[in-house]
Write a protein that binds this DNA or RNA. Structure first.
Lengths: 130, 130
DNA sequence: ATAGGGCTTCCAGTAGCTGGAGGGTCAAGT
DNA sequence: ACTTGACCCTCCAGCTACTGGAAGCCCTAT
């Protein structure tokens, strides 16, 4: 399989696939003309990577997950630890964003949004502590 | 005021303050020795920037908000539009993250997390569609 | 022969800083 | 006068995870 077909099947842009090769996540073969030649196993890895990234795992997490995936003797505890850590970061981010949303939606509601210059949003940004 | 004092008062790292000067958000004076010399108005702008960034506005948003703040003839509608747009992006991000959280917390719960290799997390990353 | 599409590499840029090297400046202490 | 240490300066590189684009080779169809 050439990169175009793999891109279509995996849903990942060709650029991204080349990048993943660059950083050593996959190592497709090469045809005599220099084109990358993807095996089923490469395809499989890319799909794995796509799903991991879609769940917000970092590339380094993905690298580790991939290694565990390929290791028949892995302990599920190792996988779980990565996922749990990631989950906690997501939860932190969610609550940070929720706090921002509260502030922001309040401000947007109280701002007249007309032609006059008075604006509680600017007032907040100007005066109140972070 | 030198940069160190400004950093302490504004809570922004000196590096960040220099960066903000680089990209034209502030333009402090210079002493004869080449040191940056910050006026109250610079301090005020930096505090404004710090709070805007803390609410997650992009640098470009900050630039626009700062311009509106300095414009006595602004229309609050312009400020509100920026904030509203930002709010909507935050809300999108929150719900994306919440979806991820649901998936992830379910997986973490169902993974034994012991010494055995069987792992529903890897199974999910391997088999199911994105 | 030529046109088009796909493939290659390499370089640069994105956002918003952050770290570090290499060096000048200043105030206090000896 | 000299040294020490804390400042300050500029410039360059690096971070994440790609993305865009240039320059050029390869393959197929007409």
């Amino acid at each position: 399989m050439n990169i175009g077909e793999v891109a279509k099947k995996s849903g990942l842009p060709a650029k991204t696939i080349r990048y993943y090769e660059d950083i050593g996540l996959i190592t497709p073969m090469r045809d005599t003309n220099g084109y990358r030649s993807f095996r089923e196993s490469d395809m499989h890895k890319l799909a794995f990577l796509g799903r991991s990234r879609a769940l917000g795992f970092t590339i380094e997490d993905c690298r580790n997950l991939l290694a565990l995936w390929n290791d028949q003797d892995r302990a599920s505890a190792d996988v779980r630890a990565i996922a749990k850590e990631h989950l906690e970061q997501i939860e932190t981010k969610i609550s940070d964003l929720q706090a921002i949303r509260e502030t922001l939606s309040h401000l947007v509601q109280t701002c007249a949004g007309d032609g006059r210059p008075d604006c509680p949003i600017l007032a907040k940004l100007e005066k109140f502590p972070t």
